[in-house]
Simulated assay, not measured.
Amino acid sequence: MRISVPGVPQSILASNRSNVPKVSPEEAVYRLTQFLKNGQVTLLTGAGVSVDSGIRAYRGEDGRYMNPDYKPIFYHELVDDSAKGHAFRQRYWLRSYLGYPPVRDAEPNTTHFALAALQHTGFIPNLVTQNVDGLHHKALAKHTGRPSHHLQDHILELHGTLHRVRCKHGHAVDRDTFQTWLSAANPKWRQFADEMEKAGTQPRTNPDGDVAIEHLGISYSDFVVPECPTCSESDRKNSVHKPDLVFFGESIPDQVRDRSFREIENGQKLLVMGTTLATYSAFRLLKHALELKKPVMMLNVGPSRADGLNLEKIDIPSGVVMTDVAKSVVGATACEDPIIIKMLQDGIVKPPATKEDRTPRRAG
């Protein structure tokens, strides 16, 4: 089975970026405000919007997928019932066990809250995100108190979420509970994780909660992946679990794919933010919008799969402009609505350090 990690075409990456027009923050704010001010804009986001929360992008300058030696675990490897599949799961879940807490504890940044303000005021009725970190939900819920089912109605997680786990028979559990199961089954690794946290030596964490730890000389062979307790009640032994997200080599559920197309169709415009659109599941949404003759604007730093298409592109980090954009779009509401005031004053700006280990997963 041949599966590759999707990326931006080399012809685009090799192009001369000096030809991309540079804009000032003031001009970017003006152009984004003009695009958003009439509302009914569907938003498509990627890992770039979470960088200021300390979660690095997949394909940015220091992104894991820009390393040609990196090899993620594919869907068929993770769910394989053989001894080889068991070894893959030990590798995946140990790395995820160590890497999940920083993603779980991450806080929304200024871009997340600016977008939440635009959602709350109706300018962006629906948001489609490729991110699995749940930070859009955190930002929208923090000052509005909106229940989870309401958030799910307005935020579509195209690639799923890290915050839920399912066994191969479909039994779901929240990730914090599963993390507790992993700790109970692996006291040695719990101690190791606690010591890392105290020493401030947390390995480099990626957007999918994965970490690189081979350089530490660690073996995966003694890591225990617990059995599903619901399956055990039916006398079925089953330790095949996966986070509720889409792996490479796995298809997006039909209902998610169909809803993502409806979100594009229901909006008057499409704003694309913080993504190279390397994955086809996102790129085809942009193509669908263009086929429907909808205006499209892209806010992203660096080359993307959309370069050369008929859309307006602004090359500037979202964190530099989005708070001012939200203030400009919502107008007087930014000074009168207590919820919007809190949103536009909130958000961290703590991008990850760049000088960290980039060791790839070893094959085999």
Rank of each mutant, 00 (worst) to 15 (best):
G7D: 09
Q10E: 15
S11M: 14
L13S: 08
N16Q: 13
N19L: 14
K22C: 02
E26I: 15
E27K: 04
L32T: 09
F35Y: 02
F35G: 00
Q40A: 10
V41K: 01
L43Y: 02
L43N: 02
L44K: 12
G48W: 14
V49H: 03
S50M: 06
V51R: 03
D52V: 15
G54M: 06
R59I: 04
R64N: 02
D69H: 10
F74M: 13
Y75P: 00
Y75L: 06
E77G: 09
E77I: 13
V79I: 15
S82C: 08
A83S: 08
K84D: 12
G85D: 00
W93R: 10
L94K: 05
G99S: 07
Y100I: 13
D105C: 05
E107G: 02
P108Q: 04
N109W: 03
A114G: 04
N126H: 03
T129Q: 10
T129D: 01
H136A: 14
H136Q: 07
L140M: 03
H143E: 11
H150S: 10
E157I: 07
R164S: 00
V173L: 10
R175Y: 11
T177C: 13
F178L: 07
Q179N: 08
T180H: 11
W181F: 14
A185M: 07
P187W: 12
P187L: 14
K188H: 14
E197T: 09
A199Y: 04
P203K: 03
R204C: 02
N206F: 14
S219M: 05
S219V: 09
Y220M: 15
F223H: 12
V225W: 03
C228D: 08
T230M: 11
E233Y: 06
N238Q: 05
L245I: 10
L245R: 09
V246K: 04
D254E: 14
V256C: 13
E265F: 10
G267R: 03
L270T: 10
M273V: 15
K287W: 04
H288K: 10
A289Q: 14
K293E: 10
M297W: 06
S304E: 10
N310F: 12
I314M: 08
I314E: 00
D324K: 12
A326V: 04
V329E: 00
T333F: 06
E336V: 08
I341V: 08
M343I: 13
I348D: 02
D357C: 12
R358Y: 00
R362D: 06
